[in-house]
């Protein structure tokens, strides 16, 4: 009975994701196009000037970087508790995507920091904890690749991912707990956002577009891994 359960779900996933994927791609293209169009038609900010447009790619990248880690952590917990292979695959598939978005958050932030703060990089609580996120992603990928046995690799990296999740609240609250050069929270704050609607809309649309894009990439990577495992099972059946 459990083996049937394990076999049925990847198949269901392939069917469902095959139907959903084109819609997800269309949603990504639409929200991103709208976000870019609005983003380049805003007036410059009263202080940041035109560098405010860097925010429209910086904030979404940073958001997806953290969301991807959250998703990876949830999948890791399911992998450890339910021992479901699809959860292991999902956790592993999210890591390189999350790492790229984290790197983009760092690079675009640096390109904003140089003209606005006067520095490419500072070692404040927010920037340091966000750099740590990239290192955690890279260590997770290395750990997952280093262990030959698939199941053991999944267990070990799930443990690592769950412990590393403690960095997420540190990133989020760093700007409240400590003095940082990085500005405080503009959107999810008491008393409502401090961003004028003309900037909030492109920011929101780009964040939505980036989120959809993550799910497109993640879904395809999960599908690839399911196909790879099917191929491996076929080979083992032939050999055995």
């Amino acid at each position: 009975m459990p083996s049937l359960f394990e076999f049925a779900n990847p198949k269901k996933f392939m069917d469902l994701s095959g139907v959903l994927l084109p819609w997800l791609v269309a949603a990504t293209a639409l929200t991103m196009a709208a976000g870019l169009l609005l983003g380049f038609s805003t007036p410059p900010d009263y202080q940041q000037g035109d560098t405010v447009r860097i925010m429209f790619v910086h904030v979404p990248a940073a958001w997806v970087a953290m969301m991807a880690y959250g998703v990876m952590t949830v999948a890791s917990i399911f992998g450890l508790v339910n021992r479901h292979p699809l959860a292991d695959i999902a956790a592993r598939a999210a890591a390189p995507i999350g790492a790229v978005f984290t790197a983009l958050g760092l690079i675009t932030g640096s390109l904003w920091g140089r003209p606005m703060w006067g520095a490419w990089w500072v070692w404040d609580g927010r920037l340091t904890s966000f750099l740590l996120l990239l290192l955690i992603y890279l260590a997770y990928i290395a750990l997952n690749d280093a262990i030959e046995n698939e199941t053991r690799a999944a267990r070990a990296s799930a443990v690592f991912a769950i412990v590393g999740a403690v960095n997420l609240p540190i990133i989020e609250f760093s700007v409240q707990w400590w003095t940082t050069l990085h500005q405080g929270e503009s959107i999810l704050r008491k008393g409502g956002p401090t961003i004028a609607p003309v900037f909030l809309w492109p920011l929101f649309l780009m964040a939505l577009g980036y989120t959809f894009l993550f799910f497109v990439f993640w879904t395809i990577r999960i599908r690839s891994e399911i196909l790879n495992r099917r191929a491996r099972t076929l080979l083992e059946m032939r050999a055995g």
């Binding site: 560098t51 447009r53 995507i97 790229v100 395809i220 599908r223």
Partner: peptide, 29 residues
Amino acid sequence: GGFAAYVWPAYGISALALALLGFWIGHEY
């Protein structure tokens, strides 16, 4: 507004990195 040297690389690098990631994921599939 004089910030072309920062705004365009931010968009350029983002677009390039996401496109490369997309190609790699498509290739894998």
